[in-house]
Structures are given as C-alpha cells and as structure tokens.
C-alpha cells in the first residue's frame, strides 16, 4: 500500500488521444495557425507588390516577370495551392476564433470603454471579411479575366529575345493599365488596400506576439514593423493604382 501517487494530480499524467487535433482545437493552437498562415500571406503580399512595382518600368519588365512566373509550371501550382491552403486555414480559423470569442464574452457592457486596443485590432474580423471579398474579386478580375475591363487578356507581348516561332504572350502591362483606368475598380482597390493596411498593422504585430517573439525590448519594434509594413503595402499598391488612374502611366 502506498500513497505516493497522491502527490500527483491525474491531469499531470493525462495525454489527449490525438495530440495534433488537441493542438489544432486549442485557443493558442488556432492562433499559431492564424499567425503562420498570415505570415505566408504577408510574404506573398510583399513579393506581389515588389513584382507589380515593375509597372513603373518599361512594359517589357513586368511582362517578362509574368512570363517567367507562368513558365514555372508545376512549381507555380505548388505555390498557388500552398497559398490557397494558407488562405483557407486563415479564414476558417479566424472565423472560428471570432465566434468562440463572441460566445466567451457573453453579455456586453451597457457602457463600453476601450483603453488601448487599436481600431485596427478591433476591426480585424470586418477588414478580413472585406479583404476576402476583394481577393475573390481580384482573382476573378486579373487572374481569370472574368471582369471585362479594358485589354483584360491581350496576348500581344513578344519577348525581346524570342524568335518568330514563339507564341505571343499575355500583356500584363496592358491589363493593369486597362484595369485601373476604370475609376470604380480603382476606388475598390484603393479602399481594399486601406483595409489591408489596417489588417497588416495589427496582424504583423500579432504574429510576432503569437510566435512568442514579442519580448519586452521587442514590443515597440514589433509595433513599428507592423505599421511600417502595413503602410508600405498600402502606399506601394496605391501608387500603382493612382499612377494609372491619373494617367501617369499609359
């Protein structure tokens, strides 16, 4: 007879039946998924922006860049599928978290007040939803070409070094310029980029926090990084749209 085991609480021995699912279902596990998938998408947004900034160079640059990407073939599809998976996980988990959080808060205060939560942090769900709509529109628009703006899918780009046998390729430069000449489209893009700026300004800092990197000395730099990245993405993308809309690029 021994009572030695009495010193250990049963929970100290308990291991959940499926450890991966336990992680996925836990509050912090979900945050990790949101943070990691968010990080993937932030990376994509930054690369995407850098690529698109070639619009300010002669048309051949961006067209060649697009052609290069297309030529990656299966690798491109791997990127697309990964990105899509990240996107889906991000959306599903944030929707689940939001719902859980609404339930967890229960009855709201008659008189609400906020001390230091930023507007961006409190509107993540809504900025996220509108961005979701934007992304669908964006894919329909430029990737699939289902939104018929000017010169949407014109195949008249001839690579410089190409010989006559090469087929003509997609003129991305014309598509962009054509697309953003439409003021309705441009305004929608601008508004969405503004929301993306907000979303990133909280999202990047949150990622640093969730990944456990926001230590005391890094708390402030994380916030600056977050705002900086948000604004950089906004200004870069907005510059493209505005430059075309106001005819600086034609």
């Amino acid at each position: 007879m021994s009572t030695a085991a009495a010193a250990d609480a049963p929970s100290m021995r308990a291991v959940p039946p499926n450890r991966l699912i336990a992680f996925y279902r836990s509050s912090i596990g979900k945050k990790w998924i949101v943070a990691l998938t968010g990080l993937v998408m932030v990376g994509f947004v930054v690369v995407h922006l850098i690529g698109n900034l070639q619009i300010f160079l002669p048309p051949a640059y961006i067209n060649a860049y697009a052609a290069k990407l297309k030529s990656l073939g299966p690798v491109l599809w791997l990127f697309r599928i990964s990105l899509f998976a990240a996107f889906v996980l991000h959306v599903i988990n944030t929707i689940q978290l939001s719902r859980m959080n609404r339930v967890a808060k229960g009855e709201r205060y008659v008189k609400e007040a906020t001390v230091q939560a930023t507007v961006a942090s409190r509107t993540m769900f809504y900025s996220g939803l509108i961005l979701l709509a934007f992304i669908i529109f964006h894919i329909l628009h430029f990737t699939l070409g289902w939104i018929p703006t000017e010169n949407i899918h014109v195949m008249d780009y001839a690579p410089e070094a190409g010989n006559a046998k090469d087929p003509l390729l997609h003129n991305v430069w014309k598509m962009l310029v054509g697309g953003f000449r439409n003021p309705f489209v441009s305004v929608f893009y601008l508004v969405s980029m503004g929301l993306l700026c907000m979303h990133l300004s909280h999202g990047v800092e949150s990622t640093v926090q969730t990944l456990g990197l926001r230590t005391k000395p890094l708390a402030r730099p994380a916030r600056y990084l977050s705002w900086g990245l948000g604004w950089a993405v906004f200004l870069g993308n907005a510059a493209i749209v505005l430059a075309i809309l106001f005819g600086f690029i034609k």
């Binding site: 009495a6 010193a7 250990d8 609480a9 049963p10 929970s11």
Partner: peptide, 8 residues
C-alpha cells in the same frame, strides 16, 4: 490546488 486536483 494540487490536492484539490487529486481529489484529496
């Protein structure tokens, strides 16, 4: 708390 958790 530990002992509450053990049921003791």
């Amino acid at each position: 708390s530990k002992q509450i958790a053990t049921g003791g």
